[in-house]
Design a protein around this nucleic acid. Sequence first.
DNA 1: CAAAAAAGTGAACATTGTTTGCTTTTTGAA
DNA 2: TTCAAAAAGCAAACAATGTTCACTTTTTTG
Lengths: 215, 215
Amino acid sequence: MSDAATHTPTPAERRRHRVRQTILDAAERVFAEDGEAGLSIRRLADEIDYSPGAIYKYFESKQELVDELKEAFFARILDRVEDLPDDPDRFLLYARKCMTTYIHTALDRPHHYAAAFSGEVNMTNTPLNLSPFSNRMKAFGILQAMVNGGVTLGIFRADLDVDLAAKSLWASCHGVALLMTHMPDLPLAFVGRPDVSQTEFIEAHADLIVRGLLA
Amino acid sequence: MSDAATHTPTPAERRRHRVRQTILDAAERVFAEDGEAGLSIRRLADEIDYSPGAIYKYFESKQELVDELKEAFFARILDRVEDLPDDPDRFLLYARKCMTTYIHTALDRPHHYAAAFSGEVNMTNTPLNLSPFSNRMKAFGILQAMVNGGVTLGIFRADLDVDLAAKSLWASCHGVALLMTHMPDLPLAFVGRPDVSQTEFIEAHADLIVRGLLA
DNA sequence: CAAAAAAGTGAACATTGTTTGCTTTTTGAA
DNA sequence: TTCAAAAAGCAAACAATGTTCACTTTTTTG
């Protein structure tokens, strides 16, 4: 909308953007391999043949850089969930698919997922001032719409509080994703059941939640 | 069982144990206030009037110290959940209470809870070699027993995979606890519903999960 | 009581994120 | 084209971190 946004970029701007992207790409690589703990400014600078200080010409802080990685990751989740075909005739299938897709995407990039939620604990009970337009919030919006659709179709309980239910649903997927990335032994081998695959567990979970919502 | 375990402690041992406990207590205080990020060896040393190096006469590393805090925290959860009256006549009440108690205990010490699960991401799919006797695993065992009890009583579906269901249940509580500690705005004010209290949300969640298990 | 073990200290090391001068390069108008 | 200003980049330094080391002091023990 603003001049700056619609301004046709100069060569300098394009170059700057490209370097910025190079940094983000390198960060993405390191992050996927060694996670947030393995991501240091110096290592990043090394990988792209710059000095550590140079990074700070492109990002205010390491935090800002990591935040962009997180946002990009949520865009990835959003893409996948958005693309699911939501045929009303197969609503329950769609509902389960929303959940399993979310979890599987998290499992694809465990470090990203862990980092995305590793922010500070908010003791103050003060809202975090999350933009409702962040990809994270948009992804949540899809879940809300899904639950709402289920109620409208008469498949889910009519007395459901859609917001609360959507949050429960999200939280449950969140928990499964974290448990599986942080303690892969727990969902699988720990109880001596190597026959149950990750996928089966995830589907069983989605099924459980959906059952809880049924009319 | 061994001599060392049953050995009546010498004065020196008692003193050593007391200093060790002093360190843990100070860590507990700092941790509850400022979380893992605020806990530095130097600050700890400052609080208890020792030098930083002295801490290392009592703990191999900061990690070992933090691990003890975590284990103590799980003992806290375990205590609370163990103490719940499990009257078979009020089984559903008990089932929900297991979940809500877990979540409320987590919310009591948000920093502890966050730290307790902030371990490294396990990419290898190799079991973490968690002792089945850790308080964490014991707490999980209670959930398993609860689900199993529900199936036996004929209240939960007979075709339930008890292990999987217990894990789903745990994961869902885990997710709720993390979501509420890390994004307190989400469960409450974000969607413009300041009328729904934390407690109500937690109970709605427990209800949802239990419904999913019902026969 | 003396030797050995333990407790404790303060300085040092390596590694972090970040800042600061300084040099080099690029830009944009006279 | 020229040349000052702006941007990009670098090496060094700073502060804070976990941890170690050499050393002193205290306590235990034969």
